[in-house]
Computed example of a mutant assay.
Amino acid sequence: MSGDIFALIPMLALSIPIIAITTRHKRRMAELEVRRLEAEAASGRSASSDRTEWLEDRVKVLERIVTDKGYDLAAQIEALRDAPPAAPRIEEQK
Rank of each mutant, 00 (worst) to 15 (best):
M1A: 03
M1G: 01
M1S: 03
S2R: 02
A7W: 00
I9D: 00
P10V: 00
M11F: 08
L12W: 02
A13K: 10
L14T: 07
L14N: 03
L14P: 00
S15I: 06
S15C: 07
I16H: 04
I18G: 06
I19F: 11
T22F: 05
T22M: 03
T23G: 12
R24A: 11
H25L: 11
H25I: 09
K26W: 11
R27H: 10
R27E: 12
R27Y: 06
R28M: 09
R28W: 13
M29W: 11
A30Y: 07
A30K: 12
A30P: 01
E31F: 05
L32D: 10
L32F: 07
L32S: 04
V34E: 07
A41N: 11
S43L: 06
G44W: 01
G44Y: 03
R45Y: 10
A47R: 03
S48Q: 14
S49E: 08
S49R: 08
S49M: 07
R51P: 01
R51E: 13
R51G: 07
E53P: 00
L55K: 04
L55W: 08
E56P: 00
D57S: 13
D57N: 13
R58Y: 02
K60E: 06
V61I: 09
E63V: 14
T67Y: 13
D68S: 13
K69T: 07
Y71R: 05
Y71N: 06
D72K: 05
L73N: 10
L73C: 13
A74H: 08
A74M: 08
A74V: 07
A75D: 15
Q76E: 04
I77Y: 02
I77S: 02
E78N: 09
A79G: 08
L80H: 02
L80E: 03
R81F: 15
R81C: 14
D82Q: 12
D82N: 11
D82C: 10
A83R: 10
A83H: 10
A83I: 05
P84R: 03
P88Q: 08
I90E: 09
I90R: 14
I90C: 11
E91V: 02
Q93Y: 05
